[in-house]
Every structure is written in C-alpha cells, then in structure tokens.
Design a protein around this nucleic acid. Structure first.
Lengths: 206, 206
DNA sequence: CATGTGTGTTACCGGTCAGTAACGCTTAGT
DNA sequence: ACTAAGCGTTACTGACCGGTAACACACATG
C-alpha cells in the first residue's frame, strides 16, 4: 500500500513492530469470509459485513482500503486454507502418489457433501468477478494454476503414461465436483467424484 | 404462466393470436443475454440493458415483469440453445451412443476454447444466484437434472458396466470443462476434456 | 375518423451501494 | 499524568439500483 513512499523518510517504528493487528480486523475477515462464501461477493455489502461483525462501516475502512481489497484478502485466506488440507492429505500418504490423489478426492467429496458447502470459493469468485483489473483476479489465477501444476506433478509421480493429460483430467474432475455441488446439490454427481478419479487414474496407470 | 386461471373464463382472443410480440422485446432479450453472459447477472442493470438495446427502462418494464423474470427468461433461452446443439450432435451419430458422447465433448471443447466463451450460463447463474426463491432457480435445476439424466441414459445405451456411475462421471467432467474455461482460460485443461471423456468411457466399457 | 397498441421521453421514488468527515470515548504505553 | 492508537457513532456524499407515473407521438386497424 504505502510501500512506495519516499525512501528517505524514517520508517523505523513501522517496521519494528510486526503489528499485532486489531481484533476488529479479524472479526471482519471472519464474518466477511462467511458471508461471501454463503451468499456470493456481489450480494454482500460492506455495511452488512461490518454490522454482522459487531462493528461499523467506519472501522471497516480503517482496516481495509476498499471492498475489493477485502475480497482479495478473503480469497487469499481461502487459498491458505485449501493448501492446508491439501498438504495435510498428501502428508498422510507420503510416498504413495496414487493414494494421495485418491485421498484428495475422498476429502473433497467429504467436504462438499454437506449442507454448508457451496463449492470452491475461488472458482465461484472467478465466475462472479468479471472485471479484468480486480485485485482478486491474480489471486484466483495463481491458485488455479498452482492446483493444475500440483495435479500434473502427482500424475508424474504416479508414473502415469501421459502424466500431463491425467493431471489435467483430474483437474477437470476436481473443478467439476465443486461446481456440481452448486448446480446439482450435495446428493448429486459429486458423490461419485472419488470413484471417477480412481477410474481415471487406473486408465492411465494400469 | 397464466395456465391455471379460471377455466370458465373465455380466453378465446388470447389463445387465437400466437402473439407476434414486439421487436423491442427481442432486442432486449438479445442484448440482455449477451451482457449477462459476458459480465454476469449482478453486474448488469436494467438501465444498461435497455439503453444498450436502443430503448429505455420504461419500455423494458412494459415487456418484462421484473429483472428477475428477465434473468429466468434469459436462462430458458440458454437452455433452449444448449439442448439444440446437444440434439443436433446426437442426431449426427444416431445409434452409436459412444460416438455420440465423444462428439458431445468434442463440440463442448470446440465451443469453449475461444475468447468469447465464459463457460456455462446456467452454471454461472447457479453460482451467482443464491436466493432460494429466485425465479431462475427452477430453470437451472431442471436443466442440470435433465443433463444428468441424459448422460446416464447415454451410458446405459453404451452398455457400460455401471451406467449411472459413468453417466455421473461424465456429468462431472462436463461441468468441470465449463468452469475450467472460466478459472484457467481457453488454453487450459479444457482442451483435454474430450480426451478425458474417452478415457472414462473406455474404463467403463472395454 | 376514431381507437388502441407499442413506443419514446422525462422525471421521479425509495432504497442501497461504496466511501468519507468529524467527534468522542476508552485503553495501553510511556 | 500525558499521549496516541484503536474503536464507536452519527451524519453525510454521490452514484447507482430496481421500478413507476405521466405524457406525447406514431401507426395500424376498425
């Protein structure tokens, strides 16, 4: 934000304290994440977020430059959370890439076959946000490119015949499972995502 | 719409003329469909639509009860269009269900790997519209349930081992290809959707 | 000629949107 | 005890939202 200010100015006190940040900010982030995910980004206003977080719009704008920046931060949080359970799942089956991917889809199905799920926050944001210069856009692009890269790498680790093709196919299935949760409900085709992944993997390895 | 009105009332003049409808209405529909698809539903206001269609807001509300109704009608149009090229593709390979599905995915890839594509209008609407009583919701649900049913039937026609599982897997892939176009671009994993479908089909038939 | 329908135009309504100014209070650090 | 930061509160701006009232005009039909 103010990173590009005059370098000659003394900025000592700013960089010394890592800023414990305010509790209000955390409450706003938590509330906003919940509302954005449940109702969509365009459907939720900053006033609603602030009030729901037990504060007001003024305190909101003391902590966030704009709503768009809050959205970007929300998606960064979702990315962090997604990578977390991804890495956890991988760690549980280290050295067995095939089982790693299968577990990934098992957890995906498990996470999405509940009433609260509304698919992938990043993908939903990609659908909602059409402005090419929105600060959330690079967050989404980076996350999705990362996911694709990871699937391809896992396919290579599996020793698949056409690793990139398998990786991309799994990526399609991954995205499809999320959006199918939104379009056809928790008891729809999502339920079969893990089985489909296994069939796809088998087709490229056995 | 007014199908359930009192049967004793004379409705002769209504059912006699099939209504040539106005040209303004068509222009609005076409403009709205284009804007909704490109920029999203929430991002486009009725004033913009009317002006862009060469008319004004007043004429808009003479032809549509509300914006929500326009959205529902827009999605009904997209559904009609989707079923059209679906049926065309099936007709081109009648009697060969496997080739029918493969062609379906070929056309899907072809349609989505261009600059103008922004995925499935119905699926995008499902992500954007969270109100459970929105008039567009039943349109989306019906369309997606129909697609799922069709894929399952095609899998049965193929003589697949677990037809419903294959049908649902193809549905996941279908949805995934659309959303992957939005999240990762035209040159991303979408390109491999047809190949993935073939692998999936082979896994359940060969 | 008369009537009705479709359309354009202007002005308006109440509400909500993102974002800001100004002031006062409390609390923590010194 | 003083200061400064964090926070709450109220009131406001200008723009936009979906939707409507009232009036004027063109035209096609009887």
């Amino acid at each position: 934000m103010n990173r590009a200010k005059n370098a000659q100015v003394t900025v000592q006190e700013e960089i010394i304290s890592p800023a414990p940040k305010s509790r209000v900010r955390d409450r706003i982030m938590k509330t906003a994440s919940d509302l954005f995910y449940r109702h969509g980004i365009h459907a939720v206003g900053v006033d609603t977020i602030a009030t729901e977080a037990g504060t007001n719009k003024m305190s909101f704008y003391r902590n966030f430059a704009s709503k768009d920046e809050l959205v970007a931060e929300y998606l960064r949080g979702e990315e962090r959370e997604g990578l977390l359970w991804w890495d956890e799942t991988l760690a549980a089956h280290a050295g067995n890439p095939r089982l790693q991917v299968e577990s990934l889809f098992d957890v995906l199905v498990q996470n999405n076959c509940c009433e609260e799920s509304r698919g992938c926050a990043l993908a939903n944001a990609a659908v909602e946000i059409t402005e090419p210069d929105h600060p959330a856009r690079p967050v989404i692009e980076k996350y999705k490119a990362d996911m694709r890269r990871r699937f391809r790498q896992l396919a290579r680790d599996m020793g698949a015949r056409e690793a990139d093709a398998l990786g991309d196919s799994l990526m399609l299935l991954w995205e499809g499972a999320y959006v199918a949760r939104v379009t056809m409900g928790a008891d729809g085709p999502v339920q079969g995502a893990a089985k489909a992944a296994r069939a796809l993997i088998a087709a490229y390895t056995d």
